[in-house]
Design a protein around this nucleic acid. Structure first.
Lengths: 225, 225, 225, 225
DNA sequence: CATGAATGAGGTTTCATTCAT
DNA sequence: AATGAATGAAACCTCATTCAT
């Protein structure tokens, strides 16, 4: 990851979290970072239903300030998402640079789930951003595109079971993360192995049939956790 | 299932929902059914966090009435659960009577997920009843036992990938249900196929490794949806 | 006491608790007694704010039944009062039969407070009956009259501090009971002694001055506990 | 007393009711005063069991506001209590400065009861503050200490009946206040006279016997009104 | 801008009371 | 007569949200 953890916060795509063109004032940026960090910590610890008051308290600012930056919970989640999606992008980027097409899938699933397991809120947050900010939407589309390209490469190489789509990959990774977030790394690994086996092309199984998940359905599922 | 959906309510094990020996009065039974139906519908539609007020409104009764029958959310969920677990038991029972060991797994996964997909709350509810009522706990253990026996039989016959445990089956079924509940039957079928493939013994894959889910972890996962 | 404790209940003035002329049916009498006993016990144990539902449960009858007999809390308290006032009457009667006028005051205060200390609810209940039932009111007036006669006799004999009135006696007794109910018999005795000293005529103190309590004020005080 | 009743509110020890260092904002101070005044009035009129909703309504603010300032009833009572205990302290202080030991008792009883009679809630509140705030507890202990010293001085001078303890004084004053609160000043004076007579040492009466009230019992009694 | 005070709707729960069975 | 089911008002409390300071 390019972004060192420990910095106040990572301001991914739009460097200072501004909605319009101008970047935020320095102190405002700081405040924004404080709120994001507090929210991230609380979400990770207690799930997504933390009151704004509490976030404000944890961040050491007034509620009003939180509202000024994030008009509603969704906006806050979106902002957090900005973070996460950068990480994922990084990850997919790295995965796609792996020479071996199958290995590249393996890396994506392994690292993606590892990351999601580590932060319980991440599992709740990734892929859930509403499309309010085009910047975010674009980023998400980048991820999707990257996943799709990784997948296509693998399929062209004939190492992935035919019919597998990007949403399949995403959904299976999500489910593994769910298990891993509750039961720990070793269990995640159990299901990573299972999932990879299931995705791998085999001479004796035909293409995956049935209606694949739409991206929207997938987002719904993730949102409902 | 014997119980046609659409009837006012299904009175599974204790026909009139009475806690003590006596059955409820006729009118009380009707009210109870109204509440259960309303709760079922709302839970199915919006998850388990519906307010009692709203349930009462939907059922066309006063809040107090809901509280009279179901002192807390758990009691209500349990009551709904009574229904569901009977259905599941039925199902597992039928599955275990199938002669072919693999077919018996197939049936369990197919029918179990089909049922869960039909009702979004079912996915939230099955396996989550607190152990307050031993009756329920016993039933749940019955289901677990049945699943385990189906699984063991299949494993003895060598048709299931070695190392697979009951919680794996349960978790994968849950996962499929989640997808199916959001995206519909055909998507569920897609993942049923995938899951069955993943569970089936193959000459070229070794035993499933890594730490399996404990029953408790599984219940936690289901509870968090 | 004429009424042996342990009997279902004592039906003082109007032998069967009937509002109109006719006595209650046998079973109705039994029910009434059950309710009264339950109420008495619960009031004694937890104060006067017990729900009717709970009284009904303790009595082993339906709430409706309680309401049939006692339209509201006051009626119930009144009925209990019937009991108590009989006991008090007994007591004052016995006290007034004592030959020595001062001794007769002593007995009244000692026994009256002893009785009130024993039952925490009694302290809450005695003297609080609304005047709905003339029968009760009459009985209460009987007690008052008896107290007054005991007092007058003592005053005529010059053994009581001049100016002392019946409400003074009542109020001081109530006060002692309050202490005794919380701190036990021995503390009650401490204040009985103090009060008797304060009431006794002495050569060196003049008549009690200031406005005496009206009976109504006294009842208010007792009601507010 | 320095604090004229009738002012918006009296800010006893901590001038602006702030919990931490900083004083409350101006508008918040005003609101707090409104709530306190409303609470004081309602408590005085109807006892301590007034609903927060009603207090809010009377104060002309939202319920949430009341809760913001006073998280629970105790906090509210404590805040009122802060006021009262200061007044009492004042009073005891003044009483203890009186040269004549007996006169000093007289003053304490007379003024203490006078104050309590004026406000029905005061009778419920004084001495009942939980020990959550050491500040209050300390103040209460100050009062107790002062009473004890006044009493000891009187006893050393031989003007008080031997065996009388601080709790006796407190309890008797409380009872007088109860009477006075209901029946008015003149009746209070009647009982003040009686009580003082009872407490005064006399050649012809021995020491007060029996178990004295413990401070805890006394507090219980006061709490139960 | 930042603050945190104020608001009130909405959730939970209990109970007095009525009324169909 | 007895029952207990049903009701809804009312208390309690929390929070999302707005707005004066």
């Amino acid at each position: 990851m390019a972004q060192p953890t420990g910095r106040a916060t990572s301001d991914g795509p739009s460097p200072a979290g501004a909605t319009d063109g101008r970047p935020l004032r320095k102190d405002a940026q700081r405040t924004r970072a404080l709120v994001l960090d507090a929210a991230r910590a609380l979400f990770a610890e207690r799930g997504i239903d933390v009151s704004f008051d509490e976030i404000a308290r944890a961040a050491g600012v007034g509620v009003g300030t939180v509202y000024r930056r994030f008009p509603d919970r969704e906006a806050l989640v979106d902002a957090l998402f900005a973070d996460k999606i950068e990480k994922l992008l990084d990850l997919v980027g790295q995965a796609s640079e792996v020479a071996d097409p199958w290995e590249s899938i393996v890396q994506f699933v392994e690292r993606g789930t590892a990351q999601m397991c580590a932060d319980r809120a991440l599992t709740e947050v990734v892929m859930c951003a509403s499309d309010v900010h085009e910047a975010f939407a674009r980023r998400r589309d980048d991820v999707t595109a990257a996943v799709e390209s990784v997948l296509r490469r693998a399929q062209d190489a004939g190492v992935v079971r035919p019919g597998v789509e990007a949403t399949d990959l995403a959904f299976l990774a999500h489910m593994v993360s769910l298990a891993g977030a509750h039961a720990g790394k070793e269990t995640a690994e159990r299901y990573v192995a299972l999932v990879l086996d299931a995705l791998r092309a085999r001479p004796d199984v035909g293409p995956l049939s049935g209606r694949p998940l739409s991206m929207e359905d997938f987002q719904e599922i993730v949102q409902s956790s």
